[in-house]
Design a protein around this nucleic acid. Structure first.
Lengths: 129, 129
DNA sequence: TTTATATATGCCTTGACAAGTATATGCTCA
DNA sequence: TGAGCATATACTTGTCAAGGCATATATAAA
């Protein structure tokens, strides 16, 4: 269980991640919303935490879990090598990017100075062989 | 073993996919390049085929395997819900788009997951704060 | 203190799956 | 036809991880 891919292979973990995607949650909240037993939730959270998918902050007796970006970036990077296979959807991707430009970037988490500028119209050459 | 995520959890399968990413290959070619036994390759290919990641065409006694896009799209779609967490990464994505437009000519990827190279260039509008 | 609440962890069982070995199927050519 | 190559499948075994249950730890409240 080292790779990010093995981590997200587990459906319950994906559910937890999706849940945390909307906002941070305590263990108990996850437990109730996903209807899993508390030890199960805690164990999955441990795996996710050790893999860098989430981090927790202490709030009295509770622990609030929230997402961390790095592993997602990793997955995206791996996926990138195959992107040319669904060129049809490049446009969708592009639309997504534009949307991100307009839509906010609510947390300026990472450092990395983003210099950017809207690109406007990709002209792609040929699909695939 | 139903979800695409479980399929790619296996390192050898990811290696096969990466290999097929460069061009279609026969079972024997995969076997030699990845140094796996023939039954192992065949079994993984069966899993990949049944999950829609690859398809095969017959060439005499050989079977040539090549990628199919749908499962990758699925993964990308799932990943999309988390994209706002690494807005920093937009540039890399954009670079990728540009690269696709230019068409590529490089290959040479191994079994190991690709590490994201953070070069810089690109121009795209900056996220507002 | 004691009790209640929230979360983590340890042990155990069970099931899934990957790989090895052997064998079957299928195609080509002499 | 048979021999040889290419690929698929069957069967077995070992490993590992997910979940259940019990319990430990930690904080809060009474």
């Amino acid at each position: 269980m080292e790779s990010v891919f093995e981590i997200i292979a587990e459906p319950n973990r994906r559910a937890i991640l999706s849940l945390l995607g909307s906002s941070q949650q305590s263990v108990g909240e996850i437990e109730r919303q996903l209807r899993m037993t508390q030890p199960t939730v805690s164990k999955h959270l441990r795996v996710l935490r050790e893999a860098g998918f989430v981090e927790s902050t202490v709030d009295a007796q509770r622990r609030l879990y929230q997402l961390k970006p790095e592993p997602f970036q990793q997955m995206d990077a791996w996926l990138a090598q195959f992107r040319r296979f669904w060129s049809v959807h490049i446009d969708a991707l592009e639309r997504h990017l534009d949307r991100m430009d307009h839509e906010r970037a609510d947390r300026s988490n990472q450092s990395a100075p983003t210099k950017s500028k809207t690109k406007e119209k990709t002209t792609r050459s040929k699909p695939r062989t």
